[in-house]
Amino acid sequence: MHGTLFVSGNSGLHRLHPLTKLALTFLFLVFAATLPNLLWLLAAFVILLVPMSAWGGLLRPFLRSCLVVITPFVISLSIIQGFFTPGETPLFHLAGFVLTGEGLLAGLTVASRILMALGGALLLMLSTRPDMLMLALTRSGLPGSLAYVVLTSIQIFPRFQERAQVILEAQQARGLEIKVNIFKRLRLLVPLMGPLVLSSIVDVEERAMALEARAFSRPGRKTSLLALADSPGQHLARWGLLLLMLALIGWSIWRAISS
């Protein structure tokens, strides 16, 4: 699907109700915030997220995306936390700075929290069509216009970039020099941004009309061509996940207070 991470498939993960998957994503977010240490976090990632991605037939894209996103965090956090956290176990000296074991551990822990949260979001995006997710959300009360904005921005943003390119070309063809120093750059703003804003206003007006013609603002219930399969089991599971999240949050608050 153009402009999205969605990988089509017919696995059990794909077939789960979008809200169930969304609940799982939130659960992993809560894990990321509440699990006490690196070991717990990595264990949860390996025991829960990796098998889930495999269940969805998404192991490869899942791990690849995780790696791409998390590597810069691992490196930067290890360095920053590693060198600037005081500790008892020096591992490495560099130009008067000391990399401590405690610091490295702290850095990796933060990185693994990010991995946990991001992994959850990735699982959702890889296995769920954005329009299905929005449909599920509108069914549970999200305003239709908000869902529309989310969905169109996925598809319209690339067109916006294309148009920016056309405008750049048109103004260059009118003799506008764009390779200028930083002080003169400011002067480029109006001829380049002006048409982008103004032509977008024209577009938005037309698009609004087209939407009206398609009964978008008609009051009353909307239906959908897409079928959302739900089950009492999943419904129950979502409540269960919610309770689990609350319990985890409660547990971590209790730990914080008691220490």
């Binding site: 056309v166 048109a170 103004q171 260059q172 764009i178 048409p195 103004l198």
Partner: peptide, 23 residues
């Protein structure tokens, strides 16, 4: 030559005027 220089020799009318008018 740069585009800005060539613009003095080759004038160009693009299809959509809305993608260039701004004044």
């Amino acid at each position: 030559y740069s585009t800005a220089q060539l613009a003095g020799r080759v004038g160009f009318l693009f299809q959509n005027p809305d993608e260039q008018l701004f004044e």
